[in-house]
């Protein structure tokens, strides 16, 4: 695929004329704006942008984009996206999914999109609740959560999407959050520019059914101490005064005061190191929540490989002839 010249777009060029029908205050608005801004800044041909979604609040996303959009079936967006991208690898495929869509009903497909390394961006709008069905617990909801379907508390243990992505060999894994537009735009752009499957978990607030679900991590008052902004090659330092850091004690990451350690003791972020990626995905509780690009490695894409194999066989055997196909190896003539 040749790189196309960058086009001049405004964010509004990606706005469809349709009224946006998410609840007032929903985190989805900010994500929509950030995706449109990222697309405008990247300047890739608008007609090549294909947004495929499943079912759920977040999956209404393609309706609000002035791009090609396919609002498909619950959990199945990765399958449609796979067909699109394999049929035409020149397209920029975006998958929009939610925690229920992507990790409950569609868990099987997302895992296979990861392992195949389908060249696409997968945006997970994780609000840890079922919104469109009006408030049941989701596969990322915390245990004991009280919802309409769990009045005595949910007994389900939550799944960690980043761990699933890394375990399934996703080649790009990142996390961002809906109240930081700049962070989202940069993360989405990096995801788009990565060749391969780019998985971005977005902490997204559901103002109606799970308001403040991520406040303990991303609220301005606590964010500096509870998140870890990752930069490839840089030491893992965080805190309101940049006074804390991550140190590895054997296999255990621990938080230390910067003043207590020497510089070479501080863990450096290496997005290609699978062990480090797994550790970061697991960060919770006393460890800060990682934000930014957690993992980025290069490996062949599925869509590229499918098409390369076709080209290879055409080169080797020549373009197929139907008459030769019909005859096969054992035809005979009756005179």
């Amino acid at each position: 695929m040749t790189e196309l010249p960058k086009r001049d777009y405004k964010k509004s060029d990606f706005n469809s004329s349709r009224d946006v029908k998410w609840c007032p205050g929903c985190g989805d608005y900010a994500i929509l704006a950030a995706v449109q801004k990222a697309m405008a800044e990247l300047g890739r041909p608008k007609e090549n942008q294909v947004v495929v979604s499943g079912i759920g609040c977040s999956s209404r996303f393609p309706a609000y984009m002035d791009t090609f959009g396919f609002h498909s079936l619950h959990g199945r967006a990765p399958t449609v996206a796979t067909g699109v991208k394999v049929a035409n690898p020149d397209l920029d495929v975006w998958i929009v999914t939610g925690d229920g869509d992507g990790f409950s009903i569609g868990g099987n497909h997302i895992m296979h999109a990861f392992r195949r390394n389908l060249d696409c961006v997968i945006l997970l709008f994780n609000n840890r609740i079922y919104g469109l069905t009006k408030g049941q617990y989701s596969p990322t909801s915390e245990t004991e959560k009280v919802t309409k379907s769990s009045p005595y508390g949910s007994i389900d243990a939550p799944i960690n999407p980043l761990q699933v992505a890394i375990a399934s060999n996703a080649s790009f894994v990142a996390r961002t959050y809906d109240i930081n537009p700049k962070h989202m735009v940069e993360t989405f752009k990096a995801a788009r520019l990565h060749k391969g499957v780019s998985f971005v978990e977005i902490f997204q607030n559901c103002v109606i059914f799970n308001d403040g679900a991520f406040d303990d991590v991303i609220d301005r008052k606590v964010r500096a101490d509870s998140t870890l902004e990752l930069q490839a090659g840089e030491p893992m330092i965080f805190g309101a005064e940049k006074e804390k850091c991550i140190v590895l004690d054997g296999f255990n990451p621990i938080v230390k005061n910067l003043s207590d350690v020497s510089e070479d003791q501080i863990a450096k972020h290496d997005p290609e190191n699978v062990h480090a990626s797994q550790l970061l995905a697991h960060f919770a509780n006393e460890l800060p929540t990682p934000m930014g690009v957690i993992r980025k490695v290069d490996r062949p894409t599925y869509d590229g490989a499918v098409n390369a194999q076709v080209d290879e066989v055409v080169n080797k055997k020549g373009k197929g002839s139907l008459n030769e196909l019909f005859r096969g190896k054992a035809a005979w003539t009756v005179d």
């Binding site: 396919f70 399958t79 449609v80 796979t82």
Partner: peptide, 20 residues
């Protein structure tokens, strides 16, 4: 495409049709 399951296979086929 040998898909991960039956549902995926028709989804992939449909995606391909959508793409031409």
């Amino acid at each position: 495409v040998q898909a991960e399951d039956e549902i995926a296979s028709i989804g992939i086929a449909l995606g391909a049709s959508y793409a031409g």
